[in-house]
Design a protein around this nucleic acid. Structure first.
Length: 449
RNA sequence: GCGUCGUUGGUGAAGUGGUUAACACGCUGGUUUGUGGCACCAGUAUGCAAGGGUUCGAUUCCCUUACGACGCCCCA
């Protein structure tokens, strides 16, 4: 049997409906903040990610899907969304648009060559937004509030916002040095991994799981103490705006993010619900003021956020958040003989055009089997087609909840269903007698979308 | 890249070195002259992830590979 690639998922059925719903809320919330949708390629020149992410970690070479195309070009499946957006901003000279800053959002699949575990796949779907061209602390606060509001709109309650500031390059370099100086004399007290981190990425020691309870970590120098005046004022301004927006957050000095292009504000949103695996960070972001210049554009202050939809759906399920997922249909059409089947085909078409959710039988089931199928589909109503009744211009409708049946005239079927189901069929003109020939001019149900 | 544990039908699963792989649910049909969901009856895996090995014989033991779950590393 052919299996799906490791770390990939098929999303279908009820789960797919949840995804579509979640994405609709993301779209709607982004639009309220006036972020516009952007689609960039799923693969880019390998170079983009090398430059964009930085070479201090081994992410790029080891954990991306790289390939050489037929023209000999080095390509990489995007592992994240920010680099592509920045490339697009620079390449399309969006910095020249008088409408600044550029506020965009995206939603798409990303690819990372990693060993799968809970909350981590090789193909993942991430949404995110970027504000390019503003260094105003208000834009930092806005991105955080937008991220929080998406979770809020979805009904997620048990989340926590952690924020921190790495300061500008000067502050960051000072801090990094202070951290190395602090840990170096005590290197033997740290775990094996932290010993290698000390040189490679000392900031990461702060959120080490093994040494989390070590007094050494608790008393370690904090980023905030190493901010220069300008950076500190900036961080205070971001916090002020968050307070004004009534966004709850916690300053957490261990939030450092993995990549070295970040500066100033960094933040993560954490799921606090019971049952999450080791990866409970729903999303994160931060300011990256020099990425655009690294990829050949003008120096452009930017801030962004990105989050996985898979983990978000997991959180919704663990919190048992009620979701408006439609899992029933309005009407199931039953038939036995070929004439009835043809009429069912005709009726299904008419009713669907009128706005109802209609299904019928396609596998030759017995009437008994069709009843079971109607139940499986959660049909609210069942139409049982009978040749004799149809000849008399009548149809039998069964309320599948109360089990009550009545025979009605075919002429009033749509009105009948509309009344019973109270669907979106609106402004039905009782005087209309166009019989479906009106071309939509009379606003009758025949041409309702 | 590293580690632990897994992989038996449509589903949940039991099980054994040896002629017919439990049980349950589901599904399909019948009893029911076009109205089910209850009841009863019948049918429903030529196969135990794939490949190789040990053996007279393997789904069962061994090896490899693939995939899954969880964790480490890393985390964009």
């Amino acid at each position: 049997m052919i299996q799906k690639p490791k770390g990939c998922n098929d999303i279908y059925g009820r789960e797919a409906k949840i995804w579509k719903y979640v994405e609709s809320i993301i779209d709607a919330t982004m639009e309220k903040y006036n972020y516009t949708y952007i689609r960039t390629p799923i693969f880019e020149s390998t170079e983009l990610f090398h430059r964009g992410i930085g070479e201090s970690t081994d992410i790029v070479t080891k954990e991306t899907y790289d390939f050489v195309d037929r023209g000999g070009r080095n390509m990489t499946l995007r592992p994240e969304g920010t680099a592509g957006v920045c490339r697009s901003y620079v390449e399309n000279k969006m910095y020249g648009d008088p409408n600044q800053p550029v506020k965009v959002y995206y939603n798409g699949t990303m690819y990372r060559y990693e060993r799968p575990q809970s909350g981590r796949d090789r193909e993942l779907t991430q949404f995110g937004m970027e504000v390019l061209g503003s260094d105003d602390p208000l834009s930092d606060a806005e991105v955080i509030s937008l991220a929080v509001n998406i979770y809020k709109m979805l009904g997620l309650k048990e989340i926590k916002v952690n924020i921190n500031s790495l300061g500008d390059k000067e502050s960051r370099d000072m801090y990094r040095k202070a951290l190395i100086d602090y840990f170096k004399p005590h290197i033997g007290e740290l775990c094996e991994d932290c010993q290698t981190r000390l040189e490679k990425n000392p900031l990461r020691i702060l959120d080490c799981k093994v040494d989390a309870d070590n007094e050494l970590l608790k008393n370690a120098p904090k980023t905030i103490d190493y901010l220069n005046d300008e950076s500190r004022e900036r961080f205070e301004a971001v916090k002020d705006y968050l307070d004004i927006m009534q966004i709850k957050y916690e300053v957490n000095p261990s939030i450092v993010r993995g990549l070295d292009y970040y500066n100033h504000t960094v933040f993560e949103i954490e799921a606090k619900v019971e049952g999450f695996g080791a990866n409970n960070v729903l999303g994160g972001g931060g300011r990256y003021n020099h990425l655009c210049s690294e990829i050949g554009g003008p120096d452009t202050p930017c801030i962004g956020f990105a989050a996985g939809i898979g983990r978000l759906v997991m959180a919704l399920e663990l919190e048992k958040v009620p979701l408006p997922i439609v899992e029933d249909i309005d009407l199931f059409l039953m038939y036995v003989n070929e004439d009835e089947k043809k009429y069912a085909a005709y009726l299904a078409q008419e009713l669907r055009m009128a706005g109802f959710i209609v299904d019928t039988e396609y596998t030759g089931r017995s009437l008994k089997g069709q009843f079971k199928q109607a139940d499986r589909l959660n049909a609210k109503y069942i139409a049982i087609l009978n040749s004799e009744e149809l000849d008399n211009n009548e149809i039998k409708i069964r309320n599948n909840k109360t089990k009550e049946e009545e025979i009605i005239s075919l002429d009033v079927l749509i009105y009948y269903l509309d009344e019973k189901l109270n669907t979106g069929v609106e402004d039905i003109d009782d005087e209309c007698s166009c019989g479906g020939e009106c071309e939509g001019d009379c606003h009758c149900h025949h041409h309702h979308e």
